[in-house]
Design a protein around this nucleic acid. Sequence first.
DNA 1: CTGTTAGCGCTTTCAA
DNA 2: TTGAAAGCGCTAACAG
Lengths: 341, 341
Amino acid sequence: MKPTVHDIAKIAGVSLATVDRVLNGRPGVRSITRSKVEEAIAALGYVRDLAAANLAKSRTYSFVFILPENDNSFMIGLREEVRGAISRSSAERTHIRIADVPPFDPEALVAALEKAIADKPAGVSFVALDAPEVQAAARRVTAAGIPIVTLVSDLPDSPRDHYAGIDNIAAGRTAGSLMGRFLSGREATVAVLAGSMLVRDHRERLEGFSAAIGEAFPGIHILPVLEGRDDPALAETMISDALRRHPDMAGIYSLGAGNRGLIRAIRKADVPKRPVVIAHELTVSTRAALADGIIDAVLNQDAGHEVRSAIRVLKAKADGLPVLAAQERIRIDIFLKDNLP
Amino acid sequence: MKPTVHDIAKIAGVSLATVDRVLNGRPGVRSITRSKVEEAIAALGYVRDLAAANLAKSRTYSFVFILPENDNSFMIGLREEVRGAISRSSAERTHIRIADVPPFDPEALVAALEKAIADKPAGVSFVALDAPEVQAAARRVTAAGIPIVTLVSDLPDSPRDHYAGIDNIAAGRTAGSLMGRFLSGREATVAVLAGSMLVRDHRERLEGFSAAIGEAFPGIHILPVLEGRDDPALAETMISDALRRHPDMAGIYSLGAGNRGLIRAIRKADVPKRPVVIAHELTVSTRAALADGIIDAVLNQDAGHEVRSAIRVLKAKADGLPVLAAQERIRIDIFLKDNLP
DNA sequence: CTGTTAGCGCTTTCAA
DNA sequence: TTGAAAGCGCTAACAG
């Protein structure tokens, strides 16, 4: 039989309450008593039954998820996943609040973090913006003893406990390699469509893409980045223009959102040969374009996995437990039309 | 406050024991009483607290995992993952037994299934072999009320509750598409190295590969399949021979195991240009070959995910609970040297 | 500083 | 056919 607190109490010759105090590092135990209990714990190889403990405490983990009110499919999907987690709250002993913030607004994010601190939740998860004031706010969250998991976009040089998202440099490199291979390393001109170079993810993807191309495919020439602000209409205009100016354009890497516009531009384009297109995030539109052969590959991060992982990690951190690294690694999914889920 | 059995008892005007009997569909309740209780349950929107129930029952889920004593890296890794799960047993309230069976031996698998039935576990998971006697045995497991999750290799036309593994036809198609794209659709000869055409996974991968090539890359000619029995030494000989006979060979698809031999053969080969190589399963050797540029892409199934998923699903089935399909879908991971984990 | 006692939400004898 | 009461493993008052 698995040892319980009773066994410890018996062996150490103390009461349940004292065992509990030692187990939970609460004060008010003579060090001599404490060590007797600790010996018994070690001798028995005791491991606490978290479920029973949570039952006794009628514990629910309260978390705050701070999400940007972005209207692209990916962010909408991410929010949907958090809602899904909320609907499973009772079974998972969680209480999750979604805090909405305007996109790309560090001030608003800081305010939301302050509000979260006031709530004293068991954990906070947010889509980070790479700004000093956000880092400072994150430090305050940590100082308040609240675990942090950054979601989708990381906050380096901050004390966040975990990042639930992909390695964007690696994603960019992957896109670069695929582009190079699909173009067979021949002389070619490729365009890059980004949302904004102010966003860290986009900068990193571009960095990885350029590096991979530069190292292995010297014949490929990358045009200056087009910043489409993740806006379909703007993306459409920019890509149409670019295709007109460079009718020989052999490839397009779309590393941000707004792919609906990109897809429209390509469908309408009057070019001898469709360019190789690699985009990010599997959405209704990119999926359809992949199936139709308009897009050649889609790199994806699984929003559901990210949200579930963030919750698991926050729980573990709240309980001071280790996480299963392999389970929490967010993959860079590569989808061709052949392996669509 | 979340409603509890006490609330139900109060509202229905019965005792806890009766509520419990209704909740668990146990006999000995007048139908009039039963409906009173059911009304109360519905009115309150009651959902049972599984953790509390398991505590009261001091329940542990006992599972049997039947694994082939195969000595390739993938199977070794799979076994390692099951061991990892065993080491987490106490926290996860599971008791997992590994049953070893000789590989590719339907009789042995059937015997192991029979033994599992005798154990009366809460669930069984096994790497299926596609044989009628195995299907029959699986039916007996189901008849005994034991949930089944097939692992890595599926058993069609059987009543298995779930399959924790990848879609091998899609994997083959993916390999085919990548091969075609990497070869730019030019005239080319490619070889296929399989373990055995008697294994369903391998047949399906070949089927998908051939289909994808046939549909989109008519210039590519696929040589007759080489059956290397997942044996490195044999694979090495076969690939070396093939490269000698076809010095112009442009690609190799290795859809089984034994990749160490394949890699050695390629390293030693005296050919003008290295072929494009696509292999399955990320192992120490395929990983190194990927990094060195010997292998161009590796398709992988995450053994850790498969095992954790199998356990989650078996638990859910044992409790009659639904599963989160998105969480349990095993992806076809595509690794280039740029997105290695 | 330490122990007693009453639960958390559910299940399970054992009586009635 | 129903109910009372004890208990799963742990925690949290409240006394001493």
